[in-house]
Structures are given as structure tokens and as C-alpha cells.
């Protein structure tokens, strides 16, 4: 069963084409690493999947919703598709617990007690059970990013999107976030990750997608893609 399916997706900013006919299929439980240079359209593609960016043509089927026919209920869709950003985007005026429970209470209408139980569980999952009352500003970047992951997980999404989630972290903190991602991949979550962590893509991803100039140039299992790149662009990208 396909969790995400992009079909000939095009997106432009004014005259600039950012996505130039992107098609991609993510089966349920697959972990897809999207690699490529800055400006290749990989983050834009990811943001299209939960409707943060609008598309000009093509369609996206995700978690039983279709984007591109103009009738998508984005709020429903976003409850099933979590996204984690490079800059964490935690709410600085709430503590960790409230960051995680806010959407549970407002969107899913879950009682405070129940929401707090869920929060404790997901925060335990990312190794931050003891930080419930901390403010985001009191946490390291790695911890903040793990809270952001927990916040997304709390909504029990079917699909998780990760937009360069370790790019703002120094190497020491990158490891703790990657470990959470690896655990998550192991649990069978469908994941789309835009990443610069080649080793991570190689070890964890079930499929790697190489983007260049708003298009997918190559895709396949990491072993095949990294060992045997078909295009000069990917060869050049890997050798850097």
C-alpha cells in the first residue's frame, strides 16, 4: 500500500520552476532519504506533501487525501502527516509538556490528563521524560529537536516528514537525533527525510532519492544508488 504518491508535481515561484514534474511513491513503512544540493527542490517537495506549499499542477496522494484538486481538508491531512523542521519551531512561551499537549488538546480534543499521558510516553520515546517542565530555551539544540519529534509523534501520524532536522546541530548533538530517527524507522513509521547525512541515508533508508534542478534524477535502494550512480550529477554529488 502506498502512503505517499506524487504524480508529475510542478511548483513555480513566479517565473522560477522549483519542482519540475516530480513523481515519487512511498510505500507504507518505507524510509525515503531525499538528497541533493541546496536549491534542488528537495525541501519544497517535502513541504508540498503536507500542504505547506501549494502546487501548480500534478497531484499528491497522501494518507488518503489528495492535494491538487483544490478540495483538500488540510487540517485533517496534517493530523496524519507530521513534519519536523530544521529550526525545531517549538513554542518558546510553553514548556516541553505544553508544547507536546497543545495540539492534542486543541485539535484532537483530548482531555488534559490523557494528553499528558501521551506526552510522557512520546517524550520517553525520545529520551526526554525528565524534561517535562523545561522551557525550550533551557534545552540544547539536540534536545529541542527531539521535543519537536515527540510533539509530532504525539499526534499519532501515519507519515512523518523530516526537513534537514540535523542541519542546525553540531556533530555531537546530531547523533542523538539520528538515533531517535533510526528507532522510529525501526518501528515501521513511513518516513520522508531531506538530509545531508549520507551515512544515515545509506544505513537507515530503504530508498534514496537524488534531486537536481527540481527533478528526481535517480532513485533506488541505497546500496545500489551509492555504489553505482547512473548520472554524472549524482557521481559528482557523492564524490564531494
Amino acid at each position: 500500500m502506498n502512503a505517499v504518491e506524487l504524480h508529475e508535481v510542478c511548483k513555480t515561484y513566479g517565473d522560477t520552476a522549483v519542482l519540475n514534474g516530480v513523481s515519487l511513491v512511498a510505500r507504507k513503512g518505507s524510509v525515503i532519504a531525499i538528497i541533493g544540493r541546496s536549491g534542488s527542490g528537495k525541501s519544497t517537495m517535502l513541504r508540498c506533501v503536507n500542504g505547506l506549499e501549494t502546487i501548480q499542477s500534478g497531484r499528491i496522494d497522501v494518507a488518503g487525501h489528495r492535494i491538487g484538486d483544490g478540495r483538500t481538508n488540510l487540517r485533517m491531512l496534517r493530523q496524519k502527516v507530521g513534519i519536523v523542521f530544521q529550526g525545531y519551531n517549538l513554542f518558546p512561551h510553553y514548556d516541553v509538556l505544553n508544547n507536546v499537549t497543545l495540539a492534542l488538546r486543541l485539535v484532537k480534543k483530548i482531555s488534559r490528563t490523557e494528553a499528558e499521558e501521551i506526552a510522557a510516553r512520546v517524550l520517553g520515546q525520545v529520551g526526554l521524560a525528565e524534561k517535562l517542565r523545561a522551557r525550550p530555551s533551557e534545552l540544547s539544540g539536540g534536545q529541542q529537536q527531539r521535543v519537536a519529534i515527540a510533539r509530532s509523534l504525539a499526534m499519532a501520524p501515519e507519515i512523518m516528514l523530516f526537513d534537514e532536522v540535523t542541519s542546525a546541530l553540531d556533530p555531537e548533538l546530531t547523533g542523538e537525533v539520528l538515533k531517535v530517527l533510526a528507532d522510529l524507522a525501526g518501528s515501521g513509521m513511513t518516513m520522508l527525510l531531506v538530509t545531508h547525512e549520507m551515512a544515515f541515508a545509506q544505513n537507515i533508508a530503504t530508498e534514496v532519492v537524488f534531486m537536481h534542478g527540481g527533478k528526481i534524477w535517480e532513485s533506488g535502494p541505497p546500496s545500489q544508488l551509492f555504489a553505482n550512480p547512473q548520472t554524472a550529477e549524482l557521481r559528482k554529488f557523492i564524490s564531494q
Binding site: 503536507n50 505547506l52 485533517m76 493530523q79 519551531n89 486543541l106 485539535v107 509530532s152 499526534m155
Partner: peptide
Amino acid sequence: EGAVSLGLS
């Protein structure tokens, strides 16, 4: 974006 992604109106 953080708020909209969590499904908040």
C-alpha cells in the same frame, strides 16, 4: 508553520 503543521486552525 509549527502551529499549522500540527493541525491548529
